[in-house]
Design a protein around this nucleic acid. Structure first.
Length: 148
RNA sequence: GGAGUCGGCCAGGCAGUCGCUUCGCCCCUUGGGCGGGGAGGAAAGUCCGGGCUCUACAGGGCAGGGUGCCAGGUAAUUCCUGGGAGGCGCGAGUCUAUGGAAAGUGCCACAGAAAAUAUACCGCCUGUAUUCGUACAGGUAAGGGUGAAAUGGUGCGGUAAGAGCGCACCGCGCGGCUGGUAACAGGCGUGGCAGGGUAAACCCCACCCGGAGCAAGACCAAAUAGGGGAACGUUCAUGCGGCCCGCAUGGUUCCCGGGUAGGUCGCUUGAGGCCUGCGGUGACGCAGUGUCCAGAUGAAUGGCUGUCCACGACAAAACCCGGCUUAUCGGCCGGCUCCCUCU
RNA sequence: GCGGGUGUAGUUCAAUGGUAGAACUGGAGCUUCCCAAGCUUCAAAUGACGGUUCGAUCCCGUUCACCCGCU
């Protein structure tokens, strides 16, 4: 686990990138455009590859490894899941905010978060804690597969 | 004070912190720093109208569609304002696809004599016959009955009984007059009843509408390719879309082979908005000062903390604008009407 | 975003403005030793609201839901 995380950490910052010091790193919790999935081909790669698949009662996380030095996030909240645009945007914002805080702890993955039925009815804090559990599970799964 | 009616406005505030996007400046190196801006009254539905773009700067005819009292406003409208007529309400107010039914066609189930050329079930009256029960012939449409709707209404005269048969008033038609820009209203004269409803049935009349829509369209770059074979021959093919005319372009069609990937602009200065003044009953218009107020492209306005209150509804721009409709927690302001009480 | 289309029993479809019908399904009964099949019978619907009309599934608005096409 230490091997898997120290390699990108050295190339990324050059500073000490230990977990307890991460929130102090400047620029570590930003969310610029290069951290997002911007093309349809990227989404197709994630949907076709689906190396990792994690579930929750309100959302599904798909992920495949990428060649970059950082994770990327894409969102797919369909109109069927959230009726109006306000609810869809709220779900996207909560997800982005959670990803923004957790991105330094994730591996180099292309991640797509899918909304499931009932996601629009949940308040933001419930979704936030649910996403935290999903990120932790994803980190554990990546660590297990890379050590194998 | 209560009840009601009409119109307008607001759509959580403040502070800290971590983020997103855009513009300007700076360090300039991939990135970063500072400062400014950053969803709505409906952004929604896409029901109308326009701008803009391409196609003939959209032309003629047919077809098709829309609208429908009058006048005005507007870029334009199925919108708005004012007025007329009719319905509802004690009233303030409110609603109305509100032209034409003697241009023609169709329909009006059931019931009813008859649903529109006309006609008579129960009745009323007269005559004839009579077995006195009624039958037949004629006149009539007042009354009853049917129906959503029944051949002008009321009264008097008249009559065998009745009937616009006659008269008065009302209604209706026609012709002047007066007021009004007009719709229409008032009043005069005259006709003597012409004749049901339905046009949100076809239709007639008047006016309007070419088509597609920013995934419109323009530019740049890359790649493939500009090739081969066959057939037809301007009375053709394409643009071109319901049809024809017309206009523009020039080879056209089929088969084989090959290929489809993006980026930039359009993109926000506009029939813009604030304030003041003037004109107008009003919608609105004119003038002046001064202003820039989202422009994203997997799609930005949020997360956390503190605090205050009325404890926060419906809801997210995607080319732009004007209307309409629908959803909506609440709060504030104003005009008017009715009822009750007090002075 | 733009442009089209459709809503009828539980399902698939009909119906000139005049009582909304058929098939399958469901319930009950008959038949059979029992089941199936068959026969008889019953129940069940015009997406919602408003308007025109004497009277709307039908005509006209508004609204809701669903489907299709255009990168």
């Amino acid at each position: 686990m230490a091997v898997a995380l120290s390699m990108p950490g050295v190339q990324r910052g050059g500073l000490s990138c230990l977990f307890d010091l991460l929130p102090l790193c400047p620029g570590a919790t930003r969310f610029p455009r290069r951290v997002r999935l911007t093309e349809a081909a990227d989404y197709q790669r994630v949907f076709k590859g689906r190396c990792y698949r994690l579930n929750n009662s309100w959302m599904t996380v798909l992920a495949v490894p990428n060649q970059l030095q950082h994770p990327r996030l894409g969102l797919a909240i369909s109109r069927k899941v959230a009726r109006n645009a306000v609810a869809r945007n709220r779900v996207k914002r909560v997800t982005r905010e959670s990803f923004r805080h957790w991105q330094t702890r994730l591996d180099s993955l292309d991640i797509v978060v899918l909304g499931r039925n009932g996601v629009a009815a949940q308040p933001g804090k419930v979704l936030d804690t649910a996403l935290e559990k999903l990120w932790i599970k994803l980190i554990e799964k990546c660590a297990g597969s890379s050590s194998n």
